[in-house]
Simulated assay, not measured.
Amino acid sequence: MNSHFKEENINCPNYWNWNGFKICWSVMGEDNEIPIIFLHGFGASRKHWRNNLGYFAKRNCASYALDLIGFGDSDQPGVREIGRLNNEIWCNQVNDFITQVIRPKSSKKVILIGNSLGALVALTCAVSLEEQIETVIASPLPDRFQEDNKKIINKTLFKKFKHRLITLFFFICPLEIILFLITKLRIIRLGLNSAYFKKDNIDRELKDLVTKPVLRRTAARSLRAMCIGMSLRDKKLKASYLLKKLCSSKKVPFLLIWGDKDNFIPLFLGKKIANFHRWVKLKVVSNAGHCIHDEDPSVFNRISYEWIRDLKNF
């Protein structure tokens, strides 16, 4: 283990130019041996891992937290600047982050830990970057899960009409007004109350890290690109397909951590995934909601580290 551990602060930002966009990231224990990237959920940022990076940094892990494009302190491009924002784009961002930021420091395979949307991005990376990823810890994994292999026949004219209709809807939808009302009517507070089972963990720092990005003037245009991108993504970018692809090789060990009080993505979906894909390990945390890593960090950190420690290559 690196005996010269330096105490860094997750609030200390680093900036990286990715395809002309400013991307924000933080790191703790950068000179350590085992690289980990922490990927936040929808509406959150790298700071949501405030109670996790230090724990892993003290255990020989170079712990990186990345603001996905459109979130946190990273740029918030719209459709005109970047096109559709979806998990393929965020996967490309992670891929280039590994190549340009991590690889000059380490050649080891990278561990991905994601919350909700970040878990879907991690799964996408595990399929696309299979040879570079050591393991994925998803807590929890969003997206509808389908067990059957029925092929969905997309009629070209209907598909075009659907795409145009969805695109038009989000372009005329007054997202600027909606985001303004969300901040003024304390809807964010209601959302956090639904996401967290333990209400005491909803502090000022948490409310700020969720609210401040929404107040930026570019937030609505980026949200529009996400709504269109996630609504119209190909089936190959959905969790059911990605899990099936990952199952065919089983090269990337996959751990699900799920709160039994998750109001956003119910536990039965996690059980459904684990029952269908027997190679996926499911750990259920009692009395925990959607953001276990922040709501009950000591439990989340212990489960995650034990999983990492027990991997054969370590």
Rank of each mutant, 00 (worst) to 15 (best):
I102H: 05
C291H: 03
D200G: 02
P297N: 09
F169H: 06
L282S: 11
I10K: 07
I10M: 13
N32W: 09
D208A: 09
I178E: 05
L68S: 10
I133Y: 06
F300C: 05
K155Y: 13
L129V: 05
I34Q: 08
N301G: 10
F264I: 04
R233T: 09
I265W: 07
S74W: 09
W16K: 14
V299G: 03
V280T: 00
S3E: 15
D148P: 02
K6G: 03
L53S: 08
K312A: 11
F158G: 08
H163S: 15
G191D: 05
I34T: 11
C12P: 00
K238P: 00
F171P: 00
P266R: 04
I111D: 01
I182E: 04
I187C: 08
F71C: 12
R216K: 15
D294A: 11
L267Y: 02
G54S: 15
R217C: 09
E8H: 08
F71H: 14
A239Q: 05
S194K: 12
N11I: 03
T156Q: 11
M1W: 13
V127P: 00
N14F: 10
N154H: 13
V127D: 00
H293V: 04
V27T: 03
K105H: 13
L68P: 01
L215F: 04
I303R: 03
R204Q: 11
R103S: 12
K155T: 08
D200F: 03
I166T: 07
E295D: 04
H290F: 09
L179V: 13
L53D: 07
L237S: 08
V284K: 09
P297H: 10
Q93I: 05
L215W: 02
K261G: 02
I273S: 00
C291R: 01
I111G: 01
V284D: 10
D67Q: 11
E131S: 14
S231C: 12
A65T: 07
A219E: 00
L53Y: 09
F97M: 06
N201L: 03
W25F: 15
I202E: 00
V121R: 00
N193K: 12
H40C: 10
